Lab assay of single mutants.
Amino acid sequence: MIVFVRFNSSHGFPVEVDSDTSIFQLKEVVAKRQGVPADQLRVIFAGKELRNDWTVQNCDLDQQSIVHIVQRPWRKGQEMNATGGDDPRNAAGGCEREPQSLTRVDLSSSVLPGDSVGLAVILHTDSRKDSPPAGSPAGRSIYNSFYVYCKGPCQRVQPGKLRVQCSTCRQATLTLTQGPSCWDDVLIPNRMSGECQSPHCPGTSAEFFFKCGAHPTSDKETSVALHLIATNSRNITCITCTDVRSPVLVFQCNSRHVICLDCFHLYCVTRLNDRQFVHDPQLGYSLPCVAGCPNSLIKELHHFRILGEEQYNRYQQYGAEECVLQMGGVLCPRPGCGAGLLPEPDQRKVTCEGGNGLGCGFAFCRECKEAYHEGECSAVFEASGTTTQAYRVDERAAEQARWEAASKETIKKTTKPCPRCHVPVEKNGGCMHMKCPQPQCRLEWCWNCGCEWNRVCMGDHWFDV
């Protein structure tokens, strides 16, 4: 396979590697080409510095992935760790964990309700045991953590790749202090920090972006993250068709209702045909949960890209028209025109101005929308079919299609509260000796007794199943 190397943020060049090629071997190839010592090179990928003893497969490097290699003399205490030698983080029983690669970060837990604080980093599902597709590297999971809308060759929703760059020099040479644990960490600028490894760059702020994971991409090709779309790892039924499908869209209502993408497309087109989208002054033209839940309008309007190009163009047109109407304007009634106009409040005669090729020149009556006339309008008909009709959803289907309910059931079956801080902690095999993952707590306690870890627990039921 081919990976592209950008040395000291210059133009990239291809390097041929195998899945079992080590990072140090990659350094040696680059060092020979650039005429520099291999031990002064640092390989940066997806916000993480890659260790010498890791392989291309370990690092989730795919065909035509772009890695950054910078030349920086080692500072005291760094060289041993980078070589894969006596790194205290690798000691058996050590409590410190390697910062998780962005290629394996899962933010789907952050669609849980606000009262489930902490689960994004504490609760991990076991539903990723799908067998890898044919042709994928051994052991590589097909679980997708992110979804994007690819405006490039795909023109559809695709699995996405999370990447990070330095907000100062805009190069992907920043190593994160810690990985993101929720969508806010990724979507809110300057929320996460790190250290830029580019020479002479003092940058410390992280800037995240997404790429389409279905095809090789260049540095400049980015895609918009659709953070309401998630892999259906909890096997929730769709609120409309009641099938279990994946991926799904999880509405931001209190129940976190789930809808499959085909039904979401149908829901949007139906509402669009009836012009029953909601115009929100802050958000724009949007839709609420299909069950009509309060405070559930979709905030990231790129989710409506699921409509496809033709329907999305209609959505944008109707949204612009609705904006004009909300501002007190009118639409030209001549067939084939429909231009938005903003006449004076007491102006009865409205002319669709033909300047700049935008208007048709038609003069019409503001009251009856017919060709302009003197005197009273002959008839004014009330528009028919403008009443909002509820999208029919079966109550039982709505009850079963809740992301929140599956989460709470998982928590109930696989977790116990920490005796000190009461945060839910998952036990997935292993011994009875637990350690609270909350940095402010870190209590060592017994899963069996529910009390602080002691010699009695150690001698009596340390390794009970």
Rank of each mutant, 00 (worst) to 15 (best):
residue 287 L to C: 03
residue 109 S to E: 11
residue 429 G to D: 15
residue 129 K to Q: 12
residue 96 E to C: 09
residue 160 G to P: 01
residue 357 G to W: 12
residue 236 I to M: 06
residue 302 H to F: 08
residue 202 P to S: 13
residue 109 S to F: 02
residue 111 V to A: 12
residue 140 R to H: 10
residue 323 C to E: 15
residue 134 A to I: 11
residue 77 G to V: 12
residue 417 P to I: 07
residue 247 P to F: 03
residue 464 D to G: 15
residue 286 S to R: 02
residue 275 R to V: 00
residue 26 L to D: 00
residue 147 Y to H: 07
residue 387 T to M: 13
residue 230 A to E: 03
residue 147 Y to M: 03
residue 209 F to H: 11
residue 369 K to G: 11
residue 199 P to C: 07
residue 432 M to S: 06
residue 91 A to R: 09
residue 351 T to S: 11
residue 423 V to A: 15
residue 236 I to A: 09
residue 164 V to A: 10
residue 116 S to E: 14
residue 149 Y to F: 13
residue 61 L to D: 01
residue 97 R to C: 09
residue 296 S to C: 00
residue 126 D to W: 05
residue 37 P to Q: 10
residue 368 C to G: 02
residue 15 V to S: 00
residue 116 S to V: 05
residue 157 V to L: 15
residue 285 Y to L: 04
residue 246 S to F: 02
residue 132 P to H: 11
residue 123 L to D: 15
residue 375 G to K: 09
residue 256 R to I: 00
residue 426 E to Y: 08
residue 7 F to V: 03
residue 311 Q to D: 06
residue 201 C to W: 01
residue 27 K to L: 03
residue 356 N to Y: 09
residue 107 L to F: 12
residue 57 Q to T: 10
residue 14 P to M: 03
residue 50 L to R: 01
residue 378 S to E: 10
residue 20 D to H: 09
residue 213 G to A: 14
residue 303 H to F: 03
residue 46 A to W: 05
residue 282 Q to S: 13
residue 215 H to T: 00
residue 283 L to F: 13
residue 438 Q to E: 06
residue 313 N to R: 12
residue 93 G to L: 11
residue 144 N to L: 03
residue 175 T to I: 15
residue 200 H to I: 07
residue 86 D to F: 11
residue 195 E to A: 12
residue 52 N to M: 02
residue 407 S to M: 09
residue 18 D to F: 10
residue 333 P to D: 03
residue 266 L to R: 04
residue 151 K to S: 14
residue 273 N to F: 04
residue 186 V to D: 01
residue 322 E to G: 03
residue 100 Q to E: 12
residue 80 M to L: 14
residue 285 Y to C: 03
residue 328 G to H: 05
residue 435 K to T: 15
residue 134 A to R: 11
residue 78 Q to G: 13
residue 145 S to T: 11
residue 166 C to T: 00
residue 404 E to I: 13
residue 25 Q to H: 07
residue 107 L to T: 15
residue 270 T to V: 12
residue 148 V to W: 01
residue 366 R to K: 14
residue 160 G to M: 00
residue 149 Y to K: 02
residue 215 H to N: 02
residue 261 L to S: 03
residue 404 E to P: 13
residue 154 C to I: 01
residue 126 D to V: 06
residue 88 P to Q: 10
residue 200 H to L: 12
residue 88 P to N: 10
residue 115 D to S: 06
residue 178 Q to P: 08
residue 105 V to G: 11
residue 36 V to H: 02
residue 458 M to D: 10
residue 376 E to L: 09
residue 291 A to F: 09
residue 61 L to K: 00
residue 311 Q to A: 06
residue 308 G to T: 05
residue 140 R to K: 12
residue 266 L to C: 10
residue 418 C to F: 01
residue 63 Q to L: 04
residue 229 I to K: 02
residue 94 G to M: 13
residue 438 Q to V: 04
residue 310 E to K: 06
residue 261 L to M: 08
residue 38 A to K: 04
residue 155 Q to Y: 07
residue 417 P to A: 10
residue 316 Q to V: 11
residue 283 L to S: 11
residue 56 V to T: 03
residue 17 V to Y: 03
residue 422 H to F: 10
residue 190 N to P: 01
residue 21 T to D: 08
residue 331 L to G: 03
residue 204 T to H: 06
